[in-house]
Design a protein around this nucleic acid. Structure first.
Lengths: 302, 302
DNA sequence: CCTAAGATG
DNA sequence: CATCGTAGG
């Protein structure tokens, strides 16, 4: 065995390591219920949908992520990366006041992926997945039908470090598009969730250095462009076409969030015909902590 | 895919889960430097050795485990289950004031086992392991030679859940005994560490229900009896032959420590001829938190 | 119940 | 730099 030996001289204590992950959302000074971009012929919003990639529902609850909803009070909550099978859901969310209609979809693999949709009112119908063998083991899509629209929430497959799963992602994009188009033939569609792509250079802090990074490859960006090309609109960019430095994700590494070195990965994508008539605004809640993503809320006339 | 659906009625929040693992050692009201059992012909102790299974050195440091040593001030510190390769040692311990002579032995397997010996004075010589191929990959033995005795610190292999590694443990016991006897032929020996056995019924809270549990099988107990049969003495039991409810380990589960449902697994075992002449006392520091084991200190005349 | 590493992001 | 499941205890 090697003589793993060391000697060192006496010295002083070192300070404790800094806690870098903020969990101290200040709701007291935050104006949450605006929806000021009302452009729906004078009609005011009467329905809100929030999407949030929680990066582990149990940890996010411990960081008081649920408090956001008592301030925002959305009609529908969509969550991604819950990483929690239904049996392990904390009581706090199972009994979340006002959201008695809850729909959960977990991956087969424990602690991986997973999405949820919580609603104040009961949807007309709820379905799960894309009817695709490969993708539907991974808990990535819930579709809820309401009277005048569908809400689809999704956690799109990450292309992975060194793009090891970019091929899978390229198989995913047309499957999701086909699903949305089939729904759109019936009623307007509101897609929301972590689409795992920053669409244009304006949608991430460092476009130049990330052209080969998961979330900003040409393939992924083109996939998103393809979705928007025909019948769908990225609502945030619709309302704020030139607004810079608006992100929904910041890696936990290197203090990225404090420096706003982020990516816009979380979207509402809505049927074009529904946008002008019924969508009022889309607010990115970048001041809200609890995950490496922040929530985003859509304001609409139902 | 299965329709993993659930609905629940609205309800109230639940309180946060209780923190069960105490880390709040109160040194201000603790008499640490006693050694009152002096039975060495009137000579007072002038040397202290502390042994402590830290159950993960990095977590234990974060729980202020090192503070104990600024109160106890032992001449030699022996640690077990460091679970830390030398490259990852925190600066706080590398630069621990007064302990400039440090000897570390890690397992090949990251985060597993590992022992250390820290000394205020430089030992005459230090060796590692038992010169046994099977055991010496696991970072379980350091031997330090001082002028008038050897200090051997060890983390004895656990027999495992359902005794899956009892066979390995049965191969271990004679190897350690042979090592100690070889040293004892040269100088008195002080063995300390987590011997992973409760010797007699008095040495654990629930002897009746643990006869088939790792740490209290007949095989393990006999192995320890065999060591004590000839040349070695369990110092704590030597000084306190009938003292009950004295333990050094409590499982983190089921609030065992608060109820003192423990085991005496950590020992000083000393050459018989040295005990009467030079060993003054052995104090179990059961009030000290930071691990699922507590420290134990030997008082002696060097 | 707790630690640490490994996979994943 | 976080999340989680796992092995190990």
């Amino acid at each position: 065995m090697p003589p793993k030996k060391r000697s060192s001289d006496a010295g002083a204590d070192t300070p404790p390591p800094a806690k870098l992950n903020r969990t101290d959302t200040d709701y007291s000074s935050m104006p949450l219920a605006n929806g000021s971009q009302t452009k729906t012929g004078g009609k005011k919003w009467n329905f809100k949908i929030t999407t949030w990639n929680v990066d582990g529902l149990r940890a996010w609850i411990k960081k008081n992520g649920l408090d956001f909803f008592t301030h925002e009070k959305p009609d529908v909550i969509c969550l991604q990366e819950t990483k929690c099978s239904e049996a392990k859901l904390p009581d706090e969310i199972k009994h979340l006041k006002g959201y008695s209609h809850q729909y959960w979809l977990a991956a087969q693999k424990e602690g991986y992926s997973g999405v949820a949709l919580l609603s104040q009112t009961k949807p007309v119908a709820v379905t799960y997945g894309l009817q695709n063998k490969e993708m539907d083991d991974e808990g990535r899509v819930i579709t809820a039908e309401f009277d005048s629209f569908f809400v689809v929430t999704t956690y799109v497959p990450n292309a992975g470090r060194k793009l090891v799963t970019l091929d899978k992602r390229m198989r995913w994009d047309p499957l999701l598009k086909a699903h949305l188009q089939a729904l759109d033939a019936q009623k307007p569609v509101i897609l929301c969730g972590d689409l795992n792509v920053a669409h244009l250079e304006i949608d991430l802090a460092n476009p130049k250095t990330n052209k080969k990074s998961a979330g900003f490859t040409k393939e992924e960006r083109d996939g998103f462009s393809d979705l928007l090309k025909e019948d769908f609109v990225d609502t945030f960019r619709h309302f704020y076409p030139d607004k810079e430095k608006c992100y929904t994700f910041w890696t936990y590494m290197m203090g990225a969030r404090a420096k706003n070195v982020g990516w816009r990965l979380d979207y509402f994508v809505v049927s074009k015909r529904f946008v002008d008539s019924n969508i009022c605004d889309n607010a990115i809640r970048s001041e809200v902590f609890g995950s490496d993503h922040c929530p985003s809320t859509l304001f609409l006339v139902k």
